[in-house]
Design a protein around this nucleic acid. Structure first.
Lengths: 211, 211
DNA sequence: AAAAACTTTGTCCGCTCGGTCAATAATTTT
DNA sequence: AAAATTATTGACCGAGCGGACAAAGTTTTT
């Protein structure tokens, strides 16, 4: 009856699950939910297809886990958006972290984008629950900043969307950016440039003119 | 031999093609290239599947036309980005037009997003040809503006990406925005707000501080 | 009005899909 | 070491896929 004794089997089980999840993130990102096939995911993970089904039961359940993963990562990135923090600093940190995630986890971002483009057929409940309350919290903070005259009175919702759009663009449209960069990945220096430019544009957009 | 006499047949032919293209835009947008099926497109267009094949031969060719359509619409939207125009006016107009397109042609935008997310398996040649030269032209204009000290010295490429990302976000992530808006479509007033806010953020981001 | 060209549509095909299942192998519990 | 549990895998299934094709209907050209 006692399972959680973490024998070699349990460890391997977790490793295999992670490997499948990583493969699934890549494949879902590049083909969308319907376009991704279990056999492609299996090939990517170097496992037979039946093994995937054994661990995750259905394609839909596997997909949901992938989507929830990226959402949770993003959620943590906004930790700095708190009433008492300096707005420009907090938003700058948020943008930095978000861009870093676009760089490190582009597949997750693409899966999310795909799911939303297709009108969230699988995770709509997530949007109406966790995403909505999380977003409302951040907007409340930004309204607080505006009330205190610490940033320009810009609709926080549109500001938030601008941040999301701009940062995630570097993941979702990575291929286009690369093509427009002579087919080369962005260099370290270009990433630094990008972070500076994005913050520059967006932060100056909300900063008080008097500064 | 003479065909272009535009009899009732020719007119009907064009109507049918347009109906299929419109249906295909919607279906490709919501399911991606692989997820979209010819039978779904056919059902959406109220035609038998064979008819689609008759007019467009293959799914791929039909898809390409859909993608080229939206690209051409977007291309025209940037007409105002010319060296002699006022930068803030020109960029503001571009943003306005781009947002209006996000509102009126969300499906086209979604198809484009899907194609890029999936690394442009069908239209890569387009990216390397028309998109690249078009983009370089705009960047040249913006560098000209910077050299003349008419906008802040922000990397034009990042600025362009910020504009694309932010405007297209309102099409591609329309469903998410709607969910965060109490499941209601944006009202006319909200669209006006959005246009103002987006321009406010991005234009203030490039505007000279001295103004 | 006969012939030619174009359009519409139903049927059919080989293939891949998500998922089931049973056989087997490996590990853990008794 | 026997029994029970967990993990791995190949064979298989009905369904839907993109597309080929031929028959029938319509329009245009002779």
């Amino acid at each position: 009856m006692n399972k959680p004794e973490r024998g070699p089997q349990a460890r391997n089980r977790e490793e295999t699950r992670e490997r499948i999840l990583a493969a699934a993130e890549r494949v879902f990102a590049e083909y969308g939910f319907e376009g991704a096939s279990l056999s492609r995911i299996a090939a990517e993970a170097n496992l037979p297809k039946s093994n995937i089904v054994y661990y995750f039961e259905t394609k839909k359940k596997l997909y949901r886990l992938v989507v929830e993963n990226i959402f949770n990562v993003w959620r943590e990135a906004a930790d700095a958006i708190q009433p008492d923090n300096d707005p420009e600093q907090a938003l700058g940190d948020y943008i930095d972290t978000k861009l870093e995630l676009a760089r490190q986890r582009p597949y997750g971002s693409k899966v999310w984008a795909n799911e939303i483009i297709q009108r969230a057929p699988i995770v709509q409940d997530y949007l109406e629950g966790e995403l909505r309350s999380w977003t409302d919290d951040r907007i409340r903070v930004m309204n607080h900043w505006i009330a205190e005259g610490r940033i320009r009175p810009i609709n926080p919702r549109n500001l938030l969307y601008a941040i999301w759009a701009t940062t995630q663009h570097y993941a979702d449209f990575k291929h286009q950016i690369q093509t427009l960069n002579e087919d080369k990945e962005l260099s370290e220096a270009q990433w630094q440039d990008t972070k500076r430019a994005v913050k520059d544009i967006l932060i100056q957009g909300v900063a008080l003119r008097s500064e």
